[in-house]
């Protein structure tokens, strides 16, 4: 279903996440953003999308189902409560989903950890910003060490946290915890989210505390730095700001700045989940059949 060699995709939800996603997709060489859908054309998000020259819709999923051209993939940037219904209606129409809400409905994906294993799934869940920022590090640490407890504390700047996220704090906490458990095999996991009101806004950060046995500075530092390098290949603003190793405890903090887009530098929470979603979508596009390409061009 490729057009001009690019896979036609759409963004559902025109909040902070949706608009940045649309912009990132426009920079992609393998994805073609054919529509951004919100609920009201007067919202800042849809106006920004229109200003970018993108077709916009205002009737939610219905706008996508009635779209004039084919849509192979939809990024769901609405909210966790709405995703199950979106998935049902769109999958029925043969559309693949990349879900940016903490809905727990689809297969959870972290590009640098299981990116290549999820490409065939028709609903791929991007977990949460905190999940994307922490799981690569936690996965690396638990591969190399025996770990009993993991804690992830995420801090996002207030202006970078939109209404859907504010209503989805429970889902954020539960989905992040579930994902950390899944990816690390550690049962005892706690996730916490702080919203910082500081001015100028604080850079997005995630602090990870890990309890276990036999941590050594050399092995921990090597594992953390290799994992961070893998994330940095598609999130250039990802960096480790602290790594304190004790025999039975490790503390790692990472910060993410947003680079290259119109969203502010501090909003690394938007940048990391959107970059991860686009990265996965691009890999899906690379393996997607081009059989319908001639029909639509």
């Amino acid at each position: 279903m490729k057009r001009n060699g690019r896979l036609p995709v759409a963004v559902l939800g025109a909040g902070l996440i949706g608009v940045d996603l649309a912009e990132k997709i426009m920079r992609s060489e393998v994805l073609d953003c054919v529509m951004v859908v919100g609920r009201d054309e007067n919202t800042p998000g849809l106006r920004q999308a229109a200003d970018l020259g993108l077709p916009v819709g205002t009737r939610g999923v219905a706008s996508l189902l009635d779209a004039p051209g084919p849509i192979a993939m939809v990024f769901d940037a609405t909210n966790a409560m709405a995703h199950a219904e979106h998935a049902e209606r769109l999958r029925g129409a043969g559309v693949k989903l990349v879900d940016l809400t903490p809905s727990k409905v689809g297969r959870m994906a972290v590009p640098s950890v299981n990116g290549t294993e999820v490409l065939h799934c028709d609903d791929i869940n991007m977990i949460s910003c905190g999940g994307q920022a922490s799981i690569p590090i936690l996965h690396a640490l638990t591969q190399a060490h025996r770990v009993e407890y993991v804690e992830v504390v995420t801090t996002a700047a207030s202006p970078s946290v939109g209404r859907s996220t504010r209503l989805n704090l429970d889902e954020y906490v539960e989905t992040t915890q579930d994902a950390v458990r899944d990816f690390t095999g550690v049962k005892d996991v706690k996730a916490i989210l702080n919203i910082s009101p500081a001015r100028p806004p604080a850079t997005f950060r995630v602090a990870m505390s890990v309890l276990g046995e036999g941590f050594g500075t050399a092995s921990v530092t090597a594992a953390v730095s290799a994992a961070a390098d893998r994330v940095r290949s598609f999130v250039p603003g990802y960096r480790i700001t602290a790594c304190v190793v004790e025999e039975s405890k490790v503390f790692v903090a990472a910060e993410v700045t947003s680079t290259g887009g119109r969203i502010p530098r501090y909003a690394g929470n938007l940048d990391i989940i959107n970059s991860a979603a686009v990265h996965i979508a691009e890999q899906c596009a690379a393996v997607a059949p081009a059989r319908t390409g001639t029909e639509t061009s």
Binding site: V153, T155, N194, S196, A207, A242, V244, A253
Partner: peptide, 17 residues
């Protein structure tokens, strides 16, 4: 100065370092 709020105890380590 950093306007830390309740719950941001993780900042203490970074400030001290």
């Amino acid at each position: 100065r950093r306007q830390a709020v309740a719950g941001q105890e993780d900042l203490i380590v970074e400030v001290a370092l």
